[in-house]
């Protein structure tokens, strides 16, 4: 399917005088998984906040550009409208409601959904099938779950709204490698059931395995973009984000050059870090 589900175009955003994003363009085609890579402070979380409409909680705002989902403009909308449109975010650090039970957390996730009780029941069945451990822990306080279980709860809670697009902010953060791999499998499964995913990760190796497309953010701008396999093969990404030695990448230069096309000025992206 060629129609872009989520289309972020020329998006700039900032917190007061601090500019966090400048002219970012990202697409998540319908049914695809797009990964957003980048280091700390690259603007990854700001991008997700801009899409979810929660910049105002941090004193930020969109200054230019558009966010479109299924052809409808969503920038500047209230978070509840964006959830109702089918976009739900799993926040960084999971942010489960620690003092509420697992069952109540899931219920909170369904509050923004349009459907009634029948839709809620269907969503709950799907979530508990995906994460059986949540059924076992239903009566427990969410704060007592392990980190991995909390990540499952956070994802399950988001799925309760039956989103068409799931935004994941660093789902592998602070998890053991085994658990991170399980989360990656789960993202694939959620995607195979028809939900598009925008995956923000510092763990580039993991993200590029799951994603079909990827962009690299640097200093609030898109430094690279392309298909996941192109990026995984690119010298630049291998050296900077995958920790692979420079010498291994010489034959990849051509593939790398192709994805640099995103750069209007043609300057090598390595310089951007210093030019800002």
């Amino acid at each position: 399917m060629g129609a872009a589900a989520l289309r972020v175009q020329g998006l700039s955003a900032g917190y007061g005088p601090v500019r966090a994003l400048s002219g970012v363009t990202v697409e998540v085609p319908e049914g695809a998984v797009t990964a957003v890579l980048g280091g700390n402070g690259a603007g990854k979380s700001t991008l997700l906040r801009a899409i979810s409409g929660t910049l105002r909680f941090h004193g930020g705002a969109i200054t230019a550009g558009t966010v479109e989902f299924g052809g409808r403009r969503l920038d500047g909308r209230a978070p509840a409208r964006i959830v109702a449109a089918g976009i739900v975010q799993v926040p960084e650090g999971r942010q489960v409601f620690a003092r509420m039970t697992v069952a109540d957390n899931l219920r909170a996730g369904s509050l923004g959904a349009a459907g009634g009780r029948a839709a809620e029941r269907r969503a709950r069945e799907r979530v508990l099938e995906l994460f059986p451990v949540l059924a076992e822990r239903a009566r427990q306080r969410a704060g007592l779950l392990s980190g991995g279980e909390q990540q499952m709860l956070a994802m399950g809670r988001a799925l309760m709204a039956a989103p068409r697009l799931l935004l994941l902010d660093e789902p592998s953060l602070g998890l053991a490698p085994m658990m991170a791999a399980r989360i990656a499998d789960t993202v694939r499964e959620i995607n195979s059931q028809g939900t598009s995913v925008l995956l923000v990760e510092q763990n580039a190796a993991l993200a590029l395995k799951v994603a079909t497309h990827a962009v690299v953010l640097e200093n609030g701008a898109v430094a690279l973009s392309g298909t996941a396999s192109e990026l995984a093969a690119s010298d630049e990404v291998r050296r900077r984000y995958l920790g692979v030695g420079h010498e291994a990448g010489s034959e990849d230069t051509a593939a790398g050059a192709a994805v640099f096309a995103a750069h209007a000025d043609g300057a090598p992206p390595t310089l951007r870090r210093w030019s800002a």
Partner: peptide, 11 residues
């Protein structure tokens, strides 16, 4: 418990 996360749930 957490206003921003509640907003992300569409509350």
């Amino acid at each position: 418990e957490h206003r921003e996360t509640a907003a992300l749930m569409g509350i």
